[in-house]
Each structure stands twice: as structure tokens, then as C-alpha cells.
């Protein structure tokens, strides 16, 4: 194809997206569109899969059966979300194994928030309330993104996600209304998860290198800073309602803006964690790679069994 022909196709492609048409797997697409989508969708899938680890930590120690079934269901949902997203990603011509390989080798990233430890039961509350809350804010606009398989996966993810946030907030309500020790646990969890949750919505607009192109492709509908403001504005009253204090001395309602002003985010910490120096980066990757390698014999055995059965049927037919 000549350069002019490609330019022409690219223009038609951009026009389709501008008209809100969806792009499907076999349609022509610019290589950059394909690559950007593989990067974002796989990063999203990896986050769901690694996101199971900090919560899996508390399944066996949940304080009641009610809490245990809910947490188990939530973690199972996260596995499901990872699978929807990996499948959607594979429609772009990348294999599942390549995607795993990118995660395991550290080439692909996942949400930095999962590199923080879950040291008390209250962390299950804070994660559901704050981390899933921030995730929902990020994900809802993606239900309308231009790539069909991604948009369809996100519709399903978003439908399931709201239970996650509610179960987390319910844990926080119970603790905040409990004994002084329980309330202290809730406040401590909020103190530790608040800032990482704000960072989770991504670098500031000035620092965000992919925003402009992603906006054009509707991979992003709102900037990181707008999403962060939305998250803060909706979460602060939820904290107040249950008598917890947001750990930010500069947090103040700004009448004029109709929004909360908030303190400086420690971006050095964010970049440290992204670069692999968070409290649990190594632990998470070891668990993930260990599960993959330890499961290899099971995958091989299943494949051998399937082949044996297929051959048996074939022999019967002959």
C-alpha cells in the first residue's frame, strides 16, 4: 500500500470514530490504534488478575461467613473481568501467552495500587470502597469506547463492579460504628489507601503522555485530573457520613468551583511504585509467576487428556 493510500484509510478510520461508529476486530485499523489498545486492554486485564492477590490474602480470615462469601465472589469476579479483557485483547491478534509473558517479564504494567500490602481486615473495606470506587470512575466512560470488544467487555465489568464497592463500604460502615479499636482500624485503612487511590487515576494531565491520542479514539473520555476531582468530590461526603476523616489537611470545599480543593500528591512515591519499588511489587510478581509455573503440569495434563479422548473417538469412528 502506498503512503497516500494509508493516509486515506487513516482519515476514513478517524472519521468513523468521530461518527461514533465502533471498530470491530477484522476492520482495517492503524497499527498505532492496535498497539495502543493491546497495551491498555492488557494492562487492564493484568490489573484485574494481580488485583486478586491482595484480597485473596483475607479470604480465609474473613470475620464471618457473610463477609467470606462476598469477598470470594468479588475475587472470582476479578478473575472473570481479567478473562473478558484478555479475550477482548486477543481479538487484536496477540496470543494469551504473549500477554502473560509481558506481565511476567515486567514488560507490561498493572495498576500500581496492588503493590500495597493488605495488613488488616479493614483493608478489604478500604479497597472495595476506594479502589473499586476509583476503578468505576475510570471504567464507566470506557463502555462507550471505540473498539467494540473492549466496550462490550467493559459493559459487563461495570455491571458487576458496583457490588464490589458497596460490599467494601459496608465493611467500613460496620467498623466505623463498632468498638473504638474497630473504628481505629477503619481510619487507619483510609489513611493508608486514600493517597494511593488518588494516584490510581493516573499522572496529572500535564504528565500524561497518552491522553490526547486516547481522547481522539475515545479510549479516554475525561482527563486524569477531571476523574480524580470527580472521585474526591463523591468520596469525601461518604467518609463524613460514617465519621471517618480524609487524611489531607488541605482538603477544603471550594464554593466557587463547587468542588473540593486538595493537597499535593506525592508523585515520587507513585513513580517509585510504577517502576517496581513499591512495598509488594516483588511479592505480587512472585505469586503470579509461581501460580503460572506451578500450574503448567495441570494445563499439560488437561491437554494430553483432551487429545487422548479425541483420538479414542477417532479410532472408534474408523
Amino acid at each position: 500500500m502506498s503512503e497516500e493510500q494509508i493516509k486515506n484509510l487513516e482519515n476514513q478510520f478517524e472519521a468513523r470514530i468521530a461518527r461514533d461508529e465502533k471498530i470491530e476486530p477484522k476492520d482495517w485499523m492503524p497499527e498505532k490504534y492496535r498497539k495502543t489498545h493491546i497495551r491498555q486492554m492488557s494492562q487492564h486485564a493484568h490489573s484485574e488478575i494481580v488485583g486478586m492477590l491482595p484480597e485473596g490474602n483475607w479470604i480465609t480470615r474473613a470475620p464471618s461467613l457473610r463477609r467470606k462469601v462476598a469477598l470470594l465472589a468479588k475475587v472470582q469476579d476479578e478473575a472473570g473481568h481479567g478473562l473478558y479483557l484478555y479475550s477482548a485483547c486477543e481479538t487484536l491478534g496477540v496470543t494469551r501467552n504473549e500477554l502473560y509473558e509481558q506481565l511476567h517479564s515486567g514488560k507490561a504494567k498493572y495498576s500500581s495500587i496492588f503493590n500495597y500490602p493488605t495488613v488488616t481486615w479493614a483493608d478489604m473495606g478500604a479497597i472495595g470502597w476506594l479502589v473499586d470506587g476509583a476503578a468505576i470512575i475510570n471504567q464507566v466512560p470506557l463502555c462507550n469506547t471505540s473498539y467494540g470488544p473492549y466496550a462490550r467487555a467493559m459493559v459487563r465489568v461495570c455491571k458487576e463492579e458496583s457490588f464490589h464497592q458497596r460490599q467494601g463500604y459496608e465493611i467500613m460502615i460496620k467498623l466505623a460504628n463498632g468498638t473504638p479499636e474497630q473504628k481505629e482500624l477503619a481510619q487507619d485503612a483510609l489513611n493508608r489507601w486514600w493517597w494511593p487511590s488518588l494516584m490510581m487515576l493516573g499522572p496529572t494531565d500535564a504528565e500524561s503522555i497518552h491522553t490526547e491520542q486516547s481522547m481522539k479514539w475515545k479510549l479516554k473520555r475525561k482527563s486524569n485530573d477531571d476523574l480524580r476531582q470527580q472521585f474526591i468530590d463523591q468520596t469525601v461526603p461518604q467518609a463524613e457520613l460514617i465519621g471517618l476523616t480524609i487524611p489531607d489537611a488541605d482538603l477544603k470545599w471550594n464554593e466557587e468551583r463547587g468542588s473540593y480543593d486538595f493537597g499535593e500528591i506525592n508523585w515520587d512515591e507513585f513513580w517509585q511504585v510504577v517502576k517496581g519499588h513499591g512495598p509488594c511489587n516483588k511479592e505480587r510478581m512472585n505469586a503470579r509467576v509461581g501460580a503460572w509455573e506451578g500450574g503448567e503440569w495441570v494445563r499439560d495434563a488437561a491437554m494430553a487428556h483432551a487429545e487422548k479422548k479425541a483420538n479414542k473417538n477417532l479410532n472408534k469412528a474408523i
Binding site: 473478558y84 477482548a88 462490550r152 488437561a302
Partner: peptide, 17 residues
């Protein structure tokens, strides 16, 4: 959607989950 499985039976069970 889609998924990976060793055979049809496993695909059905995984699809359920």
C-alpha cells in the same frame, strides 16, 4: 465472548463460570 480450554467439556464448564 471467548475463552481457552483443553476440550469442549472444559470450555462449557469454564463458560459457566
Amino acid at each position: 465472548g471467548s475463552l481457552h480450554a483443553a476440550d469442549a467439556e472444559m470450555a462449557l464448564e469454564n463458560a459457566r463460570d
